[in-house]
């Protein structure tokens, strides 16, 4: 490569910087696959979605999408007066701020436990077990959860009954339905975080721990001063990825409660999905645009915080 040695060797203490490859078009060849797919399959549909949010487009207009009336911000204004939409937004917020830490905590706990010198075979066994919920399709598993949560005969309420607690009708009680969905989602998702964090844990050089041991660090200290900082990229990844997924959560309430009782488990995505299903494309497009904007803002915020700390 031509432009070697452009940096003085003196600056050795600084992080070694990459030299530019000679032709930056090489980089474009590398990103080309993404660019093509994005431009062809995502950019247009995305703009179409944005565009229709300013119109009164319905499913009945799909043959002739130009023959719709522009209604300006009407869909957006309606959104803020829609009681169910407001409730859905609130539920989504609650869901993200509770399910996210819960899922990551569970994933981290499992990963740390599995990485703490468990023999190979049992470790593999546990990993598989903990990962199972993540890979199982929700349709089959929903029936099992309904059984668990059955107000009269479900194991959960029976156990509660032994200690004299009269368990609620979990899924049809407005106060418990959303918490149940949150726990169920955490149960279903933590396996993914576990795998990612486990991979990251195993990449932490043993020397760092040995150094910490020499400094006389206790277990908790080792965890805080070595493990957590080393896991930061992986944790950031889990946080961003999970929050993007959770902000769009929909499958669990769709299958378990259809968003009920009285909208208590209706999420923003589910409400949008229902509006699309009912053919209100303009209105659904507006709701989706708002959700999308919030998610983007959320992700940016997380990157900021993640970088700074």
């Amino acid at each position: 490569m031509a432009t070697t040695l452009e940096r003085p060797a003196l600056k050795q203490a600084a992080k070694p910087r990459l030299r530019k490859p000679r032709n930056s078009w090489v980089a474009w060849i590398f990103v080309l696959p993404f660019l093509v797919v994005f431009v062809v399959f995502w950019a247009g549909p995305l703009l179409a979605g944005l565009g229709m949010s300013f119109t009164d487009m319905r499913s009945t207009d799909v043959r002739d999408p130009l023959a719709v009336d522009v209604v300006g911000l009407e869909n957006y204004l309606r959104l803020f007066n829609d009681e169910l939409m407001r409730k859905a937004a609130f539920n989504t917020l609650i869901f993200v701020v509770t399910a996210l830490p819960l899922t990551i905590a569970l994933g981290l706990a499992a990963a740390v436990a599995l990485n703490s010198g468990i023999a190979r075979l049992p470790a593999a066994f546990f990993r598989l077990g903990y990962y199972t919920p993540y890979i199982t399709s929700i349709i089959g598993i929903a029936v099992a959860w309904r059984f668990l949560l059955d107000p009269d005969a479900g194991p959960i309420n029976q156990v509660l009954g032994w200690v004299g607690i009269d368990g609620p009708a979990w899924l049809s009680d407005e106060n418990t339905a959303l918490p149940v969905i949150i726990v169920m989602t955490a149960w279903r998702s933590f396996g993914f975080d576990m795998v990612v964090l486990l991979a990251a844990l195993q990449g932490i050089p043993k020397e760092l721990y040995e150094a910490a041991d020499i400094d006389g660090a206790g277990r908790w200290q080792r965890f805080r001063s070595v493990t957590v900082p080393m896991l930061r990229p992986a944790l950031l990844f889990c946080t961003v990825y999970s929050s993007i997924g959770f902000a769009q959560f929909m499958e669990e309430p769709l299958v378990m409660t259809k968003g009920g009782p009285a909208g208590a488990t209706t999420s923003a995505s589910l409400a949008i999905y229902n509006q699309f299903g009912a053919g209100a494309y303009g209105y659904a497009g507006a709701a989706a645009t708002v959700l999308f904007t919030v998610i983007v803002a959320l992700a940016l915020l997380q990157f900021r915080i993640g970088r700074r700390s």
């Binding site: 995502w42 993007i244 995505s269 949008i272 999308f292 983007v296 992700a299």
Partner: peptide
């Protein structure tokens, strides 16, 4: 990554 699938 953030596009809701149903929209597109």
């Amino acid at each position: 990554m953030m596009v809701p699938a149903i929209v597109v």
